[in-house]
Design a protein around this nucleic acid. Structure first.
Ligand SMILES: [Zn+2]
Ligand SMILES: [Zn+2]
Ligand SMILES: [Zn+2]
Ligand SMILES: [Zn+2]
Lengths: 135, 135
DNA sequence: ATAAACTCTATAACAACTATAGAGTCAATC
DNA sequence: GATTGACTCTATAGTTGTTATAGAGTTTAT
């Protein structure tokens, strides 16, 4: 299987696959006589694993760590858990941050009722005022 | 006022201020005899405006647009409103996305109860399985 | 005169891709 | 056998909003 087919099968772009190889998320593929990368089913599996992780916003270094653990099946999985906990924390922190932001944005948006000139625009006036101290 | 003082007063780093100048968010500062940038109170105001916008996650192009509108006080402020609406939409979309993500992460996290070996780790097993189709 | 603290420009790094350019490979057609 | 088209290769730059350098120049104080 050449890289184009792997791309179709997995839904990862060709460049992304090459990028993952350069970043050592997948092993360097064997090459054909004409220097084309060649892949097998194992590559499909691994790429889908990576894609799944990415869909959960895990970073490439985090995924690299998970892949390494996956390769040493005897190890304890405390490391995996710690990583997941930290990652979940960060996601939740980001949600809180965006939620606070959203409230401020909606409040700001309410301060303009269209059809005004910029001069009287509550949005711009509020943006010009000293920002709300936000931690 | 030189750039270091402006930085202290506004809380923007020196590099950030130079960056904003390059990106035309603030006008090119006048220079001293020794080629140092010189600022006045208006620069402080404008930088605080930008900082306030950034704290709301408005992008630099968006801020550039707001600043331009601010400079033409006769214009209608429909543009401002449209931008804010779009921005709010995006923030809310991101919140939803992260919330869904968070649920999946927590579910995944529950599939491992520590002290197991990686081989039996529910997290890694689930990550290896075909991802949940997520729109 | 010299040192410390500041400023200048230009450039690279960050994350995770995406998009080019320019060259090479392969299969099929004429 | 030459040409076309689809594919692949490497290398490089762009995305976003900073942050961090390097190496040089300026100002202020001692
Ligand atoms: Zn993470
Ligand atoms: Zn308005
Ligand atoms: Zn926006
Ligand atoms: Zn586990």
């Amino acid at each position: 299987m050449k890289i184009g087919e792997l791309s179709k099968v997995t839904g990862c772009s060709v460049q992304t696959i090459r990028h993952y190889e350069k970043e050592h998320l997948i092993a360097s593929a064997e090459r054909s006589e004409g220097n084309f990368r060649l892949y097998d089913e194992a590559a499909v599996e691994q790429l889908l694993f990576i894609k799944h992780c990415r869909s959960l916003d895990l970073s490439l270094p985090e995924i690299r760590q998970l892949l390494a653990l996956n390769r040493s099946p005897g190890a304890q999985c405390d490391d995996v858990n710690r990583m997941m906990d930290r990652h979940i924390e960060q996601v939740e922190a980001r949600i809180q941050e965006l939620t606070r932001l959203n409230e401020q944005l909606r409040m700001l948006r309410r301060s303009c009722s269209n059809r005004r000139t910029v001069e009287q625009c509550g949005i711009l006036r509020n943006l010009s005022a000293t920002p709300v101290s936000s931690g």
